[in-house]
Design a protein around this nucleic acid. Structure first.
Lengths: 190, 190
DNA sequence: TCCGATATTAGGACTAGGTACTAAAATCAG
DNA sequence: CTGATTTTAGTACCTAGTCCTAATATCGGA
């Protein structure tokens, strides 16, 4: 064993994540183990086979042209959602999100996460932000994980109010009140 | 012949175009010919096999992801700026900025342009957004050009108020009032 | 109507990149 | 040193094909 099984599996996951097009054979060669070991690893990690991975990526691409607002469009990862009630997403602040000069996250990323979550929580064909009242309460830095919590506070015919609070640990870093328009059907075209 | 070979091949091309995920067997059933005929057709039309098609779509998707994710730098091009007074930037709404299903620009891009401009107009080492009161007055669509105009309305010791109005043509699409903190220089890192 | 050309179908051998399973061998940990 | 864990090996089978040969079906013209 070059390294522990655990480490290999972690790196495997990583490798496949960044390059879903890699075959078991290539992986076996890369990690210097047998193809069967790679397959066992994949099974333990529930990583589908090459063709399924490729298909998944391709399907997501197709969706771009047809389907409705998927999870992929949300900034940050939704970890919990109850439509028209509440939702939680996390967003890891990386180098590309901060000002170079001071390492502080640019406001629009926090806004994007919150706004995105406000859109996602709405249980309708379409949701658009009408108004927003937001407040950045503490700068967020690279490496920090922002947990955004959205709560639907009021639902009217056209307008839905969503309150989003974002935290790093237990500290509030952002708060926003979003007034969302919901459109049950298609166009309100110009 | 159910129909002419020519017609079948045209429809075949069409079918595969809109649904690259279809197998030869499914196509054979659909056109009521044998699988072999479909394969001959594909060959004559130089249409690759299912897996190659899927792979192609998936690869395109990978490219997309790499280029669409980072929201970097100043959002929009600044075309005029007078520090601590006013600034103007333009932002062209492209496919990657809109919701797939309705072609309407996602709010955070408008916010990002405005916020970015509010930061840029501040003549100091550093500027951070403290509060913002924003309003989306009209949906913006793919292909439209947003002109954001920022105006510094009040300057206090720590706080600077910036008003940003964004237009498409002569129509107001977004308005925001930003309360910016300038250069508390956040003692920590760098 | 028959003839040749074109079109279609059938079948076999082979491929990649797997799954699912069994079994043996190697390695680790107490 | 023993028992459990991990790794490797090998088999049969799968899908969605390729490539190739050969037989059959159908059409269009003299």
């Amino acid at each position: 064993m070059r390294r522990s099984k655990k480490e290999r599996q972690e790196r495997l996951q990583d490798t496949i994540q960044t390059n879903p097009f890699v075959t078991d054979e290539e992986l076996a060669a890369a990690f210097n183990v047998s193809v069967q070991t790679i397959r066992l690893d994949r099974m333990e990690l529930s990583i589908p086979e090459l063709r399924e991975r490729i298909k998944y990526v391709a399907e997501r691409n197709m969706d771009d042209e047809v389907r409705s607002l998927p999870i992929e469009e949300v900034i940050g990862d939704i970890i919990d959602i109850e439509l028209d009630k509440s939702a939680i997403s996390i967003f890891d602040v990386k180098k590309e999100h901060v000002f170079m000069r001071n390492g502080i996250a640019r406001g629009h990323h926090l806004f994007a996460q919150a706004n995105s979550l406000a859109v996602a929580v709405i249980n309708d064909e379409m949701a658009l932000t009408g108004k927003a009242d937001i407040r950045f309460t503490r700068p967020v830095r690279e490496g920090e994980r922002i947990v955004a919590k959205a709560k639907v506070t009021r639902m009217e015919k056209l307008r839905t109010m969503v309150e989003v609070s974002s935290f790093v640990g237990s500290e509030l870093v952002f708060r926003g009140e979003f007034s969302m328009f919901r459109a049950p059907a298609a166009e309100k075209d110009d």
